[in-house]
Write a protein that binds this DNA or RNA. Structure first.
Lengths: 165, 165
DNA sequence: TTTTTAGTTCTGCAAAAAAAGAACCATTTT
DNA sequence: AAAATGGTTCTTTTTTTGCAGAACTAAAAA
């Protein structure tokens, strides 16, 4: 009986760790370093969805400095938050879903940068002999501009419908 | 007279180099290493818009190995291409605008990955005590799904209007 | 057949990024 | 007032990435 419980607990903690790794890698691929990625993954999956500094550190087996730096960075970006409970000095970190939504929006908006870049090149090439290439570049810009404008509208429409997010 | 021409030439090559650096940095920020970024920038700005291996190397003052590796990588990704001229053994590298458009599309589509990730976490949390957090995650997914679907439609509509790009 | 050309591939090094360690500091608790 | 807590900050170590150098290769030219 005791053994079985222990095994079960072990198995589920292990499973959680595996999931944290997996989701963590996805977050890495979105441009975060491993430790911040794992922190976000852990906070997303954890029950309860808030954890204090030492719980996070113990779960991820990372150093205090890494955890501290990562948490502060994530709070800076806006995807992590904390809550407190009175009579308790620790801060409980959690995912800030509003911040997450904002980050997703920003990511989409970044497409505009490529657009600007190609426009600059086309400006530079305006007297080029190679108008065929210029026309092709123009097409890329047209597509990219179309997408970008469409997306801004999508976001604006959403915001109209969902005022506070 | 000779001096002035030399100065003029020098100045314009210099200006080009400056622009290549600037555009190159923009491309770096989209996730490329410096040398590949500069190659793309150079091919975008260059007149003619195609250059052989040694021209690229000379312009960027990088090693053959860096240029070779970077060009192959860029061809792999699809943003660079080459053409040949008969009676000439060299390959002339150029921007593949179709490939570039495709890469831009793919980038936008990658938003879906975040979406999938959050869906997985929500699946994991389905029996959670903390339904408030689950609802918040659901909202993030709803937004992200909305954007993603909207974008797929934008792309599909564009493709209907522009069959071959 | 030898040499040249147009790259490629492998090894190593330097710079940058990520993480760890440890000293430190402000509150809080004892 | 002393010790403990909950971190932070600075320095060092480790890992990863990007690039260069040089030896190499397949095809073409001489």
């Amino acid at each position: 009986m005791r053994k079985r419980t222990a095994v079960t607990l072990h198995k589920s903690a292990d499973l959680l760790l595996e999931k944290v790794e997996k989701i963590g890698i996805m977050i890495e691929q979105a441009g975060q370093a491993p430790v911040p990625g794992r922190i976000v993954a852990y906070l997303m999956l954890s029950e309860p969805p808030y954890r204090d500094f030492y719980e996070i550190q113990a779960f991820l087996k990372a150093s205090k400095s890494s955890i501290s730096t990562a948490l502060n960075q994530l709070m800076q970006v806006g995807v992590v938050n904390y809550i407190t409970f009175s009579g308790n000095r620790r801060r409980y970190f959690q995912i800030n879903t509003q911040g997450l939504t904002k980050v997703i929006k920003e990511r989409y908006r970044k497409g505009q940068l490529i657009n600007n870049m190609i426009m600059e090149t086309l400006q530079h090439r305006k007297n080029s002999e190679f108008q065929r290439f210029n026309r092709e570049l123009k097409e890329v810009i047209d597509f990219s501009t179309y997408i970008h404008k469409g997306m801004d509208k999508l976001i604006a429409d959403w915001e109209k419908l969902h005022p506070l997010s």
